[in-house]
Design a protein around this nucleic acid. Structure first.
Length: 257
DNA sequence: ATGGTCGCCATGCGA
């Protein structure tokens, strides 16, 4: 089973990139972030024609997350239970024998701004919720855009990024604490060398490889025995009018069914 | 030191 996550930065602007990529990269489950559209305006038929069932949590203009799956989807939660949040950033589903949560963590704006404090609050509530959640459901996959670089290796230059949003000590500790609940960072089970998933649109960052690793797939311990590999596909970032993020793909071996 | 580039019910805002 192949599971991908991709922040597409507007699904309607990126529809040809996403469908072309899915035709060349078979995936059973796809987690999409930053749809930037309502559920009514999501191009459902395009993905149904590719054989996908669709679960959506959308809003106008900003945010928005989706889960696509080749098998039927049961929506568990829209939004983090117990956290009041008007933004469409968390969608938890059951499909293909696994619980998958698609997440778009707030960017955070300037360090110590209201947006930054909201980001930390969001992460705190996420941690508290997931701690009790995976105690009950141990086949749990959390994937998406976390807007945090976990380790020094996950940014192009630690000095430039020092005390910058997405790389502050507080944010990295918050992400480490979520991992510490009992998740494993799927990419790091496969790949040790520096691997970015995002490059700024500005200044030709992709050509200078000035990027960061902001997109992750976390596996709960119940899924570890099924783990095969994880990879990042950088090629869509080199197309015309790309998303600033690229897909991360995790491959799980077939379970006992 | 600032702005740089995108996408959005449109023009400043969020990323």
């Amino acid at each position: 089973m192949r599971i991908a996550t991709w922040n597409v930065n507007s699904i309607r602007s990126r529809i040809s990139h996403v469908t072309d990529w899915l035709k060349n990269n078979h995936c059973d489950i796809v987690l999409l972030q930053e749809l930037k559209c309502t559920e009514e305006n999501f191009p459902k038929e395009t993905f149904e024609d590719l054989g996908y069932n669709i679960a959506l949590y959308g809003q106008p203009t900003y945010n928005g997350v989706a889960v696509l799956s080749k098998t039927p989807i049961q929506i568990i939660y829209k939004g983090i239970p117990g956290f009041e949040d008007p933004s469409a950033r968390y969608l938890e589903c059951f499909t293909n024998g696994v619980t998958v949560a698609c997440i778009y963590v707030p960017n955070g704006g300037e360090v110590n701004s209201d947006k930054y404090l909201y980001k930390l609050d969001f992460l705190k509530h996420l941690q508290h919720y997931l701690k009790q959640r995976i105690a009950l459901e141990n086949n749990f996959l959390l994937g998406g855009d976390f807007n945090i670089a976990l380790d020094d290796d996950d940014v192009f230059n630690v000095d430039v990024m020092q005390n910058q949003t997405c790389f502050t000590k507080q944010e990295r500790i918050a992400l480490q604490q979520i991992l510490g609940i009992g998740f494993l960072d799927a990419l790091r089970l496969s790949i040790k060398e520096q691997t970015f998933t995002w490059w700024d649109y500005r200044g030709g960052a992709i050509f200078k490889n000035k990027g960061m690793r902001l997109d992750y797939i976390f596996l709960s311990s119940g899924l570890i025995k099924q783990f095969d590999s994880t990879f990042v596909d950088k090629t869509p970032r080199l197309l015309e009018k790309p998303s600033d993020h690229v897909p991360v793909v995790c491959i799980l071996k077939n379970s006992t069914k």
